[in-house]
Design a binder for these strands. Structure first.
Length: 269
DNA sequence: CGGGGCTCCTGTGCGC
DNA sequence: TGCGCACAGGAGCCCC
């Protein structure tokens, strides 16, 4: 499940490996993943374009093109964007680059989305996004303001992209563990110290996630097709029944807003 | 506007 | 061993 650190890892890989290369050929194998414009216009608009910049907002990756348009990629659950010497066997879409290499969009569950647009920041989803959690404006003072009126449980709120943009189910659970806060706490009930700790924990888990090149719990891979390593450092996510790294109590799992949520009932309060 | 629930998808892993 | 079903979760959508 690609979240901010996974998408950022892909962005950095591609910026390093394919910036400036030209798209020589576009092959759409699964039309479902191309959301706009029509497949014909998508192919025509991309063919011949150079890759001129790689941008990320939350979990959205935008690839700037020499034509002035952007190829906007949302990996959703199982999407992969991989640069390699040959198209991936299971590619939904692939791009043949001018140097003979390939950029493949793979997506087992087909929730992923590709778009070719003029102004990616005007996309409805991008416009509705909340604050970027690694932005310096996201500090404890600001966070306190954001939480003060919120009657919802903190964990689903952390996953609300219009509130904070980029956390998903994995990093939300990890951040709450590091801040020692129970996932079902009502957001407005958090005290000043807890808000400070959570603000720091969110930044910490995202930065660590990026440093370890993302979490390959399921089928996420980097822009080079390799696995990340942050899954080895997870404290609660997918660890139901295992011992808490801090206090050895068994990790519990509940469902919040329909999503699996793991936590330590002993050291999260 | 908020929150709950359903939907989109497919592979995995569980219980019987 | 095999079958069927729950589950995994990002985000849009509908409804109250």
């Amino acid at each position: 499940m690609p979240e901010l650190p996974e998408v950022e890892t892909v962005r950095r890989d591609l910026e390093e490996d394919v910036l400036g290369k030209r798209i020589a050929k576009v092959k759409v194998i699964d039309k479902k993943v191309v959301k706009e414009p029509s497949v014909a216009s998508f192919e025509k608009g991309l063919r011949g374009a150079r890759l001129s910049g790689f941008f990320r907002r939350a979990k959205v990756l935008a690839i700037g093109l020499s034509t002035g348009e952007y190829l906007v990629v949302h990996l959703r659950m199982t999407g992969q964007l991989v640069h390699s010497r040959a198209p991936a066997d299971k590619a939904r879409v692939w791009f043949g680059l001018s140097d003979g290499s390939f950029l493949s969009f793979n997506d087992q569950r087909r929730f992923g989305e590709l778009r070719l647009v003029r102004d990616w920041k005007e996309l409805a989803f991008v416009r509705s996004l909340g604050i970027e959690p690694l932005d310096k404006n996201f500090n404890a003072h600001r966070f306190k303001d954001m939480l003060s009126q919120k009657k919802t449980k903190i964990k689903p709120l952390l996953m609300d992209q219009s509130f904070i943009a980029g956390l998903g189910n994995l990093y939300a659970q990890e951040a709450l563990f590091h801040a020692r806060i129970l996932p079902d706490r009502v957001a407005s009930s958090l005290k000043g110290k807890e808000i400070l700790k959570l603000n720091k924990a969110i930044k910490k888990v995202l930065r660590e996630g990026i440093r370890y090149r993302g979490s390959s719990v399921d089928n996420y891979v980097t822009g080079r097709g390799s696995r990340g390593a942050y899954q080895l450092r997870l404290k609660v996510y997918d660890r139901k029944g295992e011992k808490c790294a801090r206090c050895s109590s068994p990790i519990k799992k509940v469902s919040l807003a329909g999503r699996g949520t793991c936590f330590c009932p002993q050291c999260q309060k």
